[in-house]
Design a protein around this nucleic acid. Structure first.
Length: 343
DNA sequence: AATACGGGGAA
DNA sequence: TTCCCAGTATT
């Protein structure tokens, strides 16, 4: 039995029941694929359910405001995915009359859709014979064929795509593509793969030469940048506070946060007083919410964060009611604070 | 070719 | 702690 036949058989017997497995609606497959980019099924699943309910069709998503979309995306991370999906939904709804492009070549042109997602949509929805290559596929192929070329090198990306193309099941690309990913997630997992009961264990190169836990090879990790955030939780006597939207480049684009003072090092209250923003007048009292900075860890930066409670006389017209705070899309760092602070 | 972009779960 | 997850866009 061939490699792909064994994958297909394993998948038929072991696949999980997931909501996007019972549809070939390109909108829903697209949504699931984008949500699962760099995201575990368990984490993405509740978001998928919420989105399908809020936006059953691409037209519903296109009609929504970006702020509403970001609010539904809150907590899932990589928010450019939500912004790009929203943008592309408008394009599909308005320019394509709601008809999703139906070839890899057309799909991959869309914003927020790269090689992997285009391959997934084209194969699952339109039965196009293109292999998907995600983190699972890299691992399965690297181990089974004993390939030690780094998966994130230019050479590796090209080599694994070609290898994936060579060994795919052309006659059932739909199940094969989902099957090899599921196989990587469940059977050929990153740590402690179940080689003892693996249907491929008699022909797996990595297992033969004792390289299972060395493959796949991946080039260096990014180094972590440390930043110091001071959030000003401004409160007046009328239950108002201030939020600002993050604009420009960097993390959390278009999400909301309290007014931020960023510094090169940790700030004392005395130091903070010197760098208060200009729009604050009539400051009555400042107190520190958390003595020890909260360290919010992203995959590439550590945000050393202090929340300062700033009482002022009266917030101007740009203030918002505390009762409306939960309506805004905010980073997890901010929503955690809002939950823990007794407004 | 390298880096930025979130958050969480498993070992 | 470290790894890495149904990756993509930008530099």
């Amino acid at each position: 039995m061939s490699f792909s036949d064994k994958i297909l058989r394993w998948y038929a017997e072991n696949k999980r029941k997931l909501p996007w497995r019972s549809t070939i609606d390109p909108y829903k497959i697209w949504l699931s694929e984008v949500m699962l980019q760099q995201t575990r099924v368990a984490q993405g699943l509740p978001y998928y359910e919420k989105f399908v309910e809020a936006y059953p069709t691409v037209f519903d998503l296109a009609k929504a405001s970006e702020e509403e979309v970001l609010k539904l995306w809150q907590g899932l991370g990589y928010y450019s995915r939500a912004r790009n999906m929203h943008q592309t939904a408008k394009k599909v709804a308005e320019e394509f009359n709601g008809n999703f492009p139906n070839t890899y070549a057309e799909i991959v042109k869309l914003k927020g859709i790269g090689d992997y997602t285009a391959s997934a949509i084209a194969s699952i929805c339109f039965d196009e014979q293109v292999p998907v290559v995600d983190g699972n596929v890299y691992r399965v192929l690297a181990r089974y064929f004993g390939v030690d070329v780094p998966i994130n090198s230019n050479q590796g990306i090209k080599l694994f795509k070609e290898l994936a193309h060579k060994v795919m099941a052309k006659e059932n690309i739909r199940d094969y593509n989902q099957g090899i990913m599921e196989f990587g997630a469940i059977q050929c997992s990153p740590k402690k793969p179940a080689c003892l009961v693996c249907p491929l264990n008699e022909s797996c190169k990595a297992l033969e030469i004792g390289m299972v836990n060395k493959l796949p090879v991946k080039l260096k990790k990014t180094k972590i940048k440390v930043r110091h955030f001071n959030y000003l939780v401004v409160l007046d006597d009328f239950e108002n506070t201030i939020l600002e939207q993050r604009i420009g480049k960097g993390i959390w684009q278009n999400l909301y946060q309290f007014p931020l003072v960023e510094s090169d090092n940790e700030l004392t209250q005395k130091m903070l007083l010197k760098s208060l923003p200009d729009f604050l007048h009539g400051v009555k009292e400042i107190s520190l919410f958390n003595e020890k900075p909260i360290v919010h860890k992203l995959s590439h930066q550590h945000l050393n964060t202090k929340f300062w409670i700033v009482n002022i006389q009266e917030i101007g017209p740009d203030g918002i009611s505390i009762s409306d705070l939960k309506k805004y899309p905010v980073p997890v760092l901010i929503s955690d604070f809002i939950e823990s602070f007794n407004f």
